[in-house]
């Protein structure tokens, strides 16, 4: 059974596919993410049991989040791409499936301000706790008066 047959059999709705150098990239709907990951993780053949990274991107009109999965059984990689709105961005947390999602999602929240619903401890990880704004957003402008000693 090929991978795409497997996806169709389980009713995973992937709208776009492309072969990247690291493996397959699938665009899926935001609402399907948790169910899709659960199928991919529990399946005996493909068994994507490892979450390598969670990467957020600001595409000006929307945010994209890229999840890199890895299978220790078949030694293959898979990337899932979802889109979320720019205003009030939120997506379901993958912490219930992969515990490595904890810090990756905190980083994504810290730098882009994407809210991960049902995350156990969603707070800043790289920047100080009382930082204002999310620096990797394209419209970020640092205007914090407390940091006047750091101005050029």
């Amino acid at each position: 059974m090929s991978f795409y047959e497997f996806l169709n059999n389980h009713g995973i709705d992937y709208s776009q596919e492309q072969e990247a150098s690291g493996g397959v990239v699938l665009s899926i709907k935001k609402e399907d993410l948790l169910a899709c990951c659960e199928i991919l993780k529990t399946d005996r053949l493909f068994n994507y049991d490892m979450l390598l990274s969670v990467t957020g991107m600001d595409c000006r009109t929307h945010f994209e989040i890229l999840y890199d999965l890895y299978s220790t059984r078949s030694h293959s990689r898979l990337s899932l791409k979802i889109k979320t709105d720019r205003v009030n961005p939120n997506v379901e947390s993958l912490y219930s499936l992969y515990s490595s999602a904890d810090w990756h999602e905190r980083e994504c929240f810290d730098l882009l301000g994407i809210e991960f619903v049902n995350h156990p401890n969603l707070e800043r990880i790289l920047l100080p706790k009382d930082w204002i704004g999310h620096p990797l957003r394209k419209d970020y402008n640092q205007e914090d008066e407390r940091l006047c000693w750091n101005k050029r």
Binding site: P128, K129, D130, W131, R146, L147, C148, W149
Partner: peptide, 15 residues
């Protein structure tokens, strides 16, 4: 609870 260093009033800011 803050984690940001604040400017010191006594000493002039280095510019």
């Amino acid at each position: 609870d803050s984690e940001l260093l604040l400017p010191c009033d006594e000493i002039e800011i280095v510019r």
